[in-house]
Design a protein around this nucleic acid. Structure first.
Lengths: 148, 148
DNA sequence: CTTGACTCCGTAGTAGCTACAGGCTGTGAA
DNA sequence: TTCACAGCCTGTAGCTACTACGGAGTCAAG
């Protein structure tokens, strides 16, 4: 199958497939005479594996490691288990940080409940206060990209 | 004060200060005869404001907006309130996604509790299964950068 | 006179894509 | 046959919020 079909069947973007290929996560496919990529079912499985990892927040470098394990089924799987444990711990930690953050934001929000001028706004006043708590300064940074 | 002192007093990196200046978040400072940046207390307050926003997960573009409000204290503050509300909603949404994710990861982890070979590992088998649930496919992606 | 700390500027790297530009290839309709 | 249009190709730039260089100038202490 060609790249468009592969992408559709694994529910991801054509550009993402090429991106994974460049990053060595997906085996290089054969090419048709015109240069078009030509994928097998095995490629689809690889791609699904990676997308599954990604949907669980597993990074590409770790997905790469897991793909190596996949290629060597005779190895012991305790490293796989550890990797998942680390991932769980990471997510758990993120949740805790975000919970704290939400609490701080709600407190901030409580500082101004009516519509007044910016100069009198409790939120703005709070934000202008110097960074007092140490934990906020070494706090996490998070991004998220929107779903299109 | 010079950039090093400013950075230390607001507990961030010198490079970050220059980065904010480039991005127009921090007013351009005066310069000494040798070209060194020369900051006032007002700059420190600006920087603390931005760092405070950042510690609450507010993005730089939104921090920029808030700085505009700050410069015009006579405006009504309902947009400020809305911005904070949006931020709370965003964080809340992230927490919910992460909670779901953690649950999925724990289920996955339950698929292999002993040390066996990769080929027999329930985790690897689960990961190899095609993406079945629709919600995971259009799920969020999240990164976090480690604190140094 | 040298060492070391500080500063300058500009650029590149991080993660995981996404979105072009500019150009071929292939297919169905007019 | 010619046209439009979809799909594919490569390569590169953009996104976020920084971080980390390289190579150079500045300044005070020893």
């Amino acid at each position: 199958m060609r790249i468009g079909e592969l992408a559709k069947r694994s529910n991801c973007d054509v550009e993402t497939v090429r991106f994974y290929e460049r990053g060595g996560l997906l085996d290089k496919p054969a090419r048709e005479a015109n240069g078009y990529r030509c994928y097998s079912e095995a490629h689809l499985e690889q791609l699904n594996f990676i997308r599954h990892c990604r949907s669980l927040g597993i990074g590409l470098s770790e997905a790469r490691v897991l793909r190596c394990f996949q290629a060597n089924p005779e190895l012991a799987c305790d490293e796989v288990n550890q990797l998942v444990d680390r991932q769980i711990a990471r997510i758990h930690q993120q949740i805790e940080s975000l919970r704290l953050l939400e609490q701080q934001l709600r407190t901030l929000r409580g500082a101004c409940d009516v519509n007044r001028s910016v100069g009198e706004c409790g939120i703005m006043r709070s934000l202008a206060e110097g960074g007092r708590s140490e934990d906020s300064s070494r706090g996490q940074r998070f991004e998220k990209t929107e779903d299109r």
